[in-house]
Amino acid sequence: MFWKIVLGIAVAWVAFMVLGTVIGFVFKAILWIAVIGGIAILGAAGYRAISGKKDVKRINRY
């Protein structure tokens, strides 16, 4: 009876370790995808701001 309890606890511990590893990997993957996407968006916005629009009609206020 004692060994069944120990074995059950060991199986539960291994299951939680595997589950934690999988969830941790998915969380890190999503985090890195978000970071790379944010950098890409900021880079594209910066490039667009620096390059400017060539065909925009500017308003002459003076």
Rank of each mutant, 00 (worst) to 15 (best):
I41F: 05
A29T: 08
G52F: 06
L42C: 14
V14M: 03
I39W: 08
A10R: 06
I9L: 15
M1A: 09
L42K: 06
F16L: 15
V56W: 02
K54I: 09
Y47S: 09
F2I: 08
G8H: 02
I23F: 07
K4M: 05
A29F: 10
K53A: 13
K4V: 04
G46F: 14
K54C: 01
W32H: 02
K4C: 06
A34Q: 04
K57F: 05
R48F: 11
V22Y: 11
Y62F: 12
W3G: 08
M17A: 15
F27H: 02
N60H: 07
Y47L: 13
A29D: 01
L7E: 12
T21I: 06
I5E: 07
K57A: 13
N60E: 14
R58Y: 07
I5C: 01
I41S: 05
L7D: 12
G46T: 14
I5G: 00
I50S: 03
F25C: 02
M1I: 06
G43C: 08
K53S: 14
G38Q: 08
L31G: 01
K4P: 03
A45T: 10
A34K: 09
I41G: 06
R48H: 09
L31M: 08
I36M: 09
G52R: 11
L42A: 15
G8E: 03
A49L: 11
A49D: 00
A40V: 15
G8A: 13
W32Q: 12
G24S: 06
V22P: 02
V56I: 10
R61K: 14
G43Y: 07
Y62Q: 05
K28Q: 12
V6K: 07
I39L: 15
G37I: 05
V56T: 09
G52T: 11
V35C: 01
W13P: 01
A12D: 01
F16V: 15
R48A: 13
G43L: 10
V56K: 10
G38I: 07
W13H: 01
G8D: 10
A45R: 03
V6L: 12
V18E: 05
I33F: 12
F27V: 13
G38L: 15
G8Q: 07
I30C: 00
I23K: 01
V11K: 13
A45Y: 04
M17L: 14
W13K: 05
A29I: 00
A10V: 14
A34C: 06
A40W: 04
L42G: 14
G20W: 01
G20V: 08
V26P: 03
F16W: 10
V11T: 08
W3A: 11
I36A: 15
G52P: 01
I39S: 08
V11Q: 05
F27W: 08
D55N: 15
G46C: 09
G43M: 09
D55V: 00
I9T: 12
V26W: 11
V56S: 02
A40C: 04
L31S: 08
R48Y: 11
W32I: 14
I36K: 11
Y47K: 09
A34W: 05
K28F: 12
R48M: 04
K54Y: 03
M17N: 07
V56R: 10
K53M: 06
G24K: 01
V35H: 05
F25S: 02
F2N: 01
V22A: 09
D55L: 08
K54T: 05
I39N: 07
I50C: 02
A34M: 13
W3S: 14
V26L: 14
R48K: 12
V56P: 00
